[in-house]
Design a protein around this nucleic acid. Structure first.
Length: 474
RNA sequence: GUCCCCAUCGUCUAGCCAGGCCUAGGACGCCGGCCUUUCAAGCCGGCAACACGGGUUCAAAUCCCGUUGGGGACGCCA
């Protein structure tokens, strides 16, 4: 059966040794986009052959990160730890055919030899000591090594970087089966990519040097070699590999900082890939337009400011109802009770349209929502000291008096009241609006003052002005 | 050290493969202005780059070589 582009099968294959980080998410995203673009399958495979470092918690964190970002998978998550017998069987088959051999060098010995080689300025590779020893049934702990080709060249046709040429002499005889019987990455990845019928291996740039070794393994096993696409690394501001030193690198951290998954995904897709001058892409547009032709071949520096700008863009366009929902956990963290009595008119959803134009993150937006959902309002002392002064008290008092009879309590009906007071008191709008704002919200910035009053309603507006006046008196 | 990759504004990038349309375009950020009841947003304007050196060519950001710089890999990690 002939395989067309409609049969594309790609995989995201993280090792569960930590949380899902930004770089991993982008790799997953490129895989996912490629699969969706070609109506293929996106497979998740957990590479947990290192039993000492893999954890269940990491698996959960990675899967949750993918779900949060909206990257749904068609198969899996497969687990390599469920397939150990398979790898052993294939490794032994290689031994039988003379393409692998037992090695009894201990990790300690190898470490010493590496150090020596480094001191002498020689390549740090296995010296082949056991290669020709022909050990058949070693009594001491032994690892199985792959007998790598030592002549000729291996050319990897990379979909992003073009042809990459390696002289086979640089290849080591890598260990494919540890002395504890567990397979290593290079073996299991080759077997699984074959058995799972992976057509395109899309992974981080840091795997480029593994590729010729894996190609050799594919060939020794008489497997077809998939296509490769190595996506460049993401660097920190100092151009070193992105790490904890550069602040948040965990996808979860961005969720907690109030980023929308769409915004992160949009940022990540543009980090290394482009489609002309376009900056904002819906998921459908990404799927439609994504191609390796326009994936950058050089590393990219992660820029939090641009991510924040995108996040603000997505918040601006967000459906109030949807945003209100996303806001909930952040609000609850601040003491908001969704079933409580303190609600703005129209609920949180009614506050959102006034805040989404200005908020950069959901955290910020939740904070700005607090004056409408918490009672009493938290007062910024510095703001109170500056604006809630005896000089303005009469005007505030006058406003409160007149507003008592205003009905309905709306921007249209409130505006003339304020205008009249401004004229009578010879005040500029700013002189009255700021004290009012502080009295009503406890802070110096908020949506338009009429919107604030509408949201609070007459009762809470009057109460807060009264409290402010009491405060000035005392 | 050895091997591999990469190189356009501070950052993400367009342009490069098919050389002239490039006095190099867009975006983030930054600076200035407008708007304004605050904070934002919005609008207008500004600063800012083809790493360097050789070729090839009538013509090079684009092709070739070298240098420099950066990144990655060199595990019984993945």
């Amino acid at each position: 059966m002939k395989r067309g582009m409609t049969d594309v099968r790609v995989r995201f294959a993280p090792s569960p040794t930590g949380y899902l980080h930004i770089g991993g998410l982008r790799t997953a995203l490129f895989n996912w986009l490629f699969a969706r673009r070609h109506r293929g399958k996106f497979i998740v495979r957990i590479e947990d052959t290192d039993r000492d470092r893999s954890t269940e918690a990491a698996i959960d964190a990675i899967l949750n990160g993918l779900r949060w970002a909206g990257l749904d998978w068609d198969e899996g998550p497969h687990r390599q730890s469920d397939r150990l017998d398979l790898y052993r069987e294939k490794a032994l088959a290689l031994l039988e055919r003379g393409q692998a051999y037992w090695c009894v060098c201990t990790p300690e010995e190898l470490e010493v030899r590496r150090k020596e080689a480094q001191a002498k300025g020689e390549p740090l590779k296995y010296d082949g000591r056991c290669r020709e020893r022909g050990l058949t049934d070693p009594s001491e702990p032994a690892a199985l090594r792959f007998r790598s080709p030592k002549e000729g060249q291996t050319v990897v046709e990379d979909l992003i970087k073009g042809p990459i040429t390696f002289d086979n002499v640089v290849l080591d005889d890598l260990i494919i089966l540890r002395s504890n019987g567990y397979p290593t990455y290079n073996l299991s990845v080759v077997i699984d990519d074959t058995l799972m019928e992976i057509t395109h291996v899309i992974r981080g740039d840091d795997h480029v040097n593994n590729t010729p070794r894996q190609v050799a393994l594919f060939e020794a096993l008489e497997y077809p070699v998939p296509k490769f696409a190595h996506v460049p690394m993401i660097l920190g501001a100092d151009k070193s590999r992105l790490s904890k030193r550069h602040g948040a690198t965990s996808v979860l951290a961005y969720q907690e900082m109030g980023y929308l998954p769409q915004a992160l995904v949009n940022y990540l897709v543009r980090l290394g890939w482009s489609h002309g001058d376009q900056e904002i892409f819906s998921i459908d547009e990404m799927i439609e337009k994504f191609s390796f032709d326009h994936v950058q071949s050089s590393a990219a520096v992660f820029n939090p400011e641009k991510l924040q700008w995108l996040n603000a863009e997505y918040i601006k366009q967000g459906e109030p109802r949807h945003l209100a929902e996303l806001l909930l956990p952040f609000l609850e963290k601040q003491g908001y009770d969704r079933d409580g009595l303190v609600q703005p008119r129209g609920g949180v959803e009614a506050v959102v349209p006034h805040l989404r134009e200005r908020a950069k993150t959901l955290v910020e937006m939740a904070d700005w929502t607090l004056p409408y959902v918490l009672e009493p309002v938290a007062m910024d002392e510095a703001a109170a000291g500056k604006f809630l002064t005896p000089a303005i008290a009469p005007s505030l008092d006058k406003f409160a008096e007149r507003v008592k009879t205003v009905d309905p309590f709306s921007k249209e009906s409130l505006e003339p009241v304020v205008q009249t007071i401004l004229e009578e008191e010879h005040l500029k709008m700013g002189k009255l609006a700021q004290p009012l704002r502080v009295a009503l919200t406890g802070r110096t910035f908020s949506p338009g003052i009429y919107e604030v009053m509408e949201l609070l309603g007459k009762e809470r507006t009057l109460k807060r002005i009264e409290l402010a006046l009491d405060r000035i008196d005392s």
